[in-house]
């Protein structure tokens, strides 16, 4: 067999896989989203804008996702800096494994872990009661702050890894030179480290933002009772209301709107997707 024959032989399963599992269902969902019981229509999309509960849920989800992304960045920057610049080489590998470790168990188990810690009859409450810090147990679950903390925890790895890889390429003498020229620690972060890490920050932020926006488990299990995540709206349409057409439309709206947000973010920070990806 000649070389191009071989090429196609290996490529075919990949293409088939892509086509059958990714392209085909999406095309099908795309068609579904434009249909109602009466035939073709844009009603499913119009519903999103006319029904405040839908777009408000989306705005809330987007705002919280942005907040989560920023918080993840703020937490991950010092962590990545410590791993690359301050820890000794042998400790470095160990720290990376510590970061990876939680991801060896499923997200569901991780979230239940948090719930065991935080619920009214949970470990933390028990400890505080025993220490006399609290008089009555408090419910630490089911509020927005806890949910954001859970989301930050789930997303951190995806921010730290790209940051570690850009920080490794940061020449230590640049930091020292800035220090030597009179810069304070905060100023060094602002003028040297963060500008250098920009590509890693952008790619990490995009990944984290998309993951958080599309997360279902954590907001559902840890979030407040009377506030919805947009993925829950989609779930409700498919499963509770059995309205696949509406659900499909929401799915595509989520994709389109989140892409818009990422695009605006890139524009605001003056970057191009191509530069970030390379």
């Amino acid at each position: 067999m000649n070389r191009s024959g071989l090429f196609w032989l290996f490529l075919t399963p990949v293409l088939l896989w892509l086509f059958l599992l990714i392209v085909l269902p999406h095309v099908d969902l795309f068609i579904l989203s434009f249909r109602t019981d009466e035939g073709w229509s844009l009603e499913n999309y119009a519903n999103f804008f006319t029904e405040p509960i839908y777009w408000l849920t989306f705005v809330r989800t987007a705002v919280y996702s942005i907040i989560t992304t920023l918080l993840t960045l703020v937490v991950s920057l010092p962590v990545a800096f410590y791993i690359t610049k301050l820890s000794r080489p042998r400790v470095r590998g160990f720290l990376m494994i510590l970061l990876l470790l939680p991801f060896w168990v499923s997200e569901l188990v991780r979230v239940y872990g948090w719930m065991i810690l935080l619920r009214e009859s949970g470990v933390l409450n028990y400890l505080f009661l025993q220490l006399g810090l609290l008089e009555r147990p408090v419910e630490m679950l089911y509020n927005d702050a806890t949910m954001i903390m859970g989301l930050v925890y789930t997303s951190m790895l995806f921010m730290v890894v790209p940051l570690v890889s850009v920080m490794e390429s940061l020449d230590d003498s640049l930091v020292e030179a800035a220090y030597d020229l009179g810069a304070s620690k905060i100023c060094i972060w602002r003028t040297i480290i963060i500008p250098h890490c920009k590509p890693g920050i952008t790619s990490g932020a995009i990944v984290v933002f998309m993951l958080v926006l599309g997360n279902y488990l954590t907001p559902n299990l840890m979030g407040g009772k009377n506030s919805l995540w947009f993925t829950e709206q989609i779930y409700n349409q498919f499963i509770a209301s059995f309205n696949w057409n509406q659900g499909a439309a929401f799915g595509f709206l989520l994709l389109a709107l989140s892409s818009c947000i990422v695009w605006v973010g890139l524009k605001l920070t003056g970057q191009k997707l191509g530069e970030v990806a390379s």
Partner: peptide
Amino acid sequence: LVFQHLALF
């Protein structure tokens, strides 16, 4: 200090 590898930003 002028660094060995200059360390220009």
